[in-house]
Amino acid sequence: MKTNANSSAKVLSLSKVGMKFPDGTEALRDVTFDVEPREFVSIVGPSGCGKSTILRIASGLLKQTSGEVMVDRERLGYVFQDATLMDWRTVQGNVELLAELQGFSAEEKKQRARDAIELVGLKGFENHYPNALSGGMKMRVSLARTLTLKPQVFLFDEPFGAVDEITRTHLNEETLKLFEHECFAGLFITHSISEAVFLSTRVHVMSSRPGTIVATYDIPFGYPRSPELRFDPAFGELSGTISHALKEAHA
């Protein structure tokens, strides 16, 4: 089920990437995949198989020990597993952070933050401090903060792993809207197969350590997607197939 991988218009490309930590742990071996503009690629895999490591390498936080990575780091957004907000900044201040570090003008910074806050539905909470927000709201702030950079590539590391199922469903729908609206390319790590299928154009399944991609599924549903998609029989069938592949990868 592989699609055209050697298109020249890639925003992120990993080829034969391997990672061996100094303590001898081989986290990744021969990881190869691309993300094209307007693609939303998800990676599912057992815990500890190196999913976070892939994102850390893709973003440049970590240097791979073998293989090649190609990405434009100037326009890269990274949403971490936890919201990583600054407790001492209000919602507004947190969302402005990246634009501020990039040296945008005060006006531009304010404008971008206002837009992003509106986009994630946090209007009215600008002056709240993180300690007054729920887990789901903190994740939204984190999303908004990344959105201010208008990233070309959006890396998500299990962003909704820590919120409850209902909030997660909501956030999935909102992420989908953002993706349809903001035209970024996404690379999304998750434990949840239905989340992966619901959001993605393509899903990769990874094996346990050393992590490598063992199966790839193109998701045939077009955008915009409605929340009802989750109850489509084809959706259930595809989820079942991927779930099965994941179990095999785990074995």
Partner: peptide
């Protein structure tokens, strides 16, 4: 300071 925030700043090359 949490490692996540350090990473965030590292990505901006501060």
């Amino acid at each position: 300071a949490p490692r996540g925030l350090h990473d965030l700043l590292t990505l901006q090359r501060v």
